[in-house]
């Protein structure tokens, strides 16, 4: 049977539905996720199927419901919380980085917090500076959290399932521009574990590492570079904490060149950590200094004329690669 194709949004919906069906401990909480099916319709239909005890609308009250999710997790539930726009987590940071992330440690392992915070991030839809960031860096510096991203429907399904099954708090970052992207979907395929990057395109001349929407941009760049005779390997890093540096090192040992692309400002971004790790572990493999691309060091602008230019694209990635390789 050929692969079915689904959208990224549908894959997430399937993951939530399957988790709810398989495990009575799974509950969903968030603003407008039940009756309205979610602001981006990721939870559409789940209230009707699973009822209000499993799929809970909450007030606009992130501290309240994130903290409630921690409490539920402490007694054996597996809450999955939707943060409608990534920035909304800012008002409730305490519950993620200080409560959820540290409860296992502070209780010396007596308790743990198996919760998932689904964070809807990303630019490209004209939501302006307070609704368009991807915010990975807000979480990657906090021991106790895992930070997972998904760039394809297949990974969206399997990584969200892995995140829900994980015994510890996982920040699961989605990209709102990807929700309508369609791709192959095999729900019965092997699970995708947290902590493994994926080589999504093989190549010999340059390794590009990316996440979220930057994966598709990098793949498009790779196609145009192929026409110019440059053979690019693209890696979707997928999990930012813990980060699979081994896969990147293995790739660079073959390509000798590294470009990392993230949809964040480079200051404090995960690409800096990755480059530092690769340089310290595989310095002798590198023919060129590794390069990084990110969002301009500014808030994401609103205007359509500006927004796309503030973020790496297939064109700018291809141009940077060409320059990097001296072609």
């Amino acid at each position: 049977m050929p692969d079915a194709t689904v959208t990224y949004r549908e894959a997430l919906n399937h993951a939530l539905a399957d988790a709810l069906a398989e495990d009575p401990a799974v509950v969903l909480l968030g603003e407008d996720i039940a009756a309205a099916g979610g602001s981006f319709k990721v939870t559409d239909g789940l209230l009707a199927r699973f009822g209000p005890d499993r799929v809970m609308d909450t007030p606009i009250s992130e501290t309240g419901f994130l903290g409630a999710a921690v409490g539920l997790a402490l007694i054996g539930f597996r809450p999955v919380v939707e943060i409608m726009f990534a920035e909304f987590a800012g008002v409730a940071f305490d519950q993620i980085v200080t409560t959820a992330a540290k409860h296992r440690y502070l209780s010396a392992g007596q308790m743990h917090v198996p919760m998932v915070v689904r964070v809807v991030g990303g630019s490209g839809l004209g939501f302006g500076a307070q609704h368009s960031q991807t915010t990975e860096s807000w979480y990657t510096a906090t021991p106790g959290l895992k930070v997972v991203t998904a760039a394809s429907p297949q990974d969206a399904y399997h990584l969200l399932r892995s995140a829900i099954a994980d015994p510890d708090p996982v920040v699961f970052i989605e990209h709102k521009r990807l929700y309508v992207r369609r791709g192959p979907f095999q729900p019965t395929a092997a699970p995708v574990p947290i902590g493994r990057a994926a080589v999504v395109r093989s190549g010999a001349d340059l390794t590009i590492v990316a996440s979220l929407a930057m994966v598709a941009e990098s793949l498009a760049a790779a196609e145009s570079l192929a026409a110019a005779g440059i053979d690019v390997e693209v890696i979707d890093i997928r999990t930012l904490v813990p980060m699979d540096v081994d896969t990147v090192v293995a790739s660079v040992s073959r390509t000798a060149r590294l470009l990392v692309v993230e949809e964040q400002p480079l200051s404090g971004g995960w690409s800096g950590h990755l480059v530092a790790e690769v340089v310290s572990r595989a310095f002798e493999s590198l023919e060129l200094p590794p390069a990084r691309m990110g969002v301009v060091e500014a808030p994401i602008p609103f205007s359509h004329a500006l927004e796309a230019k503030a973020v790496p694209s297939a064109e700018t990635i291809a141009a940077r690669a060409t320059t990097l390789l001296g072609r």
Binding site: F65, G67, A68, G71, L72, L74, D94, T99, H103
Partner: peptide
């Protein structure tokens, strides 16, 4: 004794979740 919180107010929403869990 489910949590002893060093951030003012931090334990209250967690307590709501504990109660909600018992209710569910």
């Amino acid at each position: 004794l489910m949590g002893c919180f060093a951030i003012v107010g931090s334990g209250l929403p967690v307590a709501v979740g504990l109660g909600r869990g018992a209710q569910l």
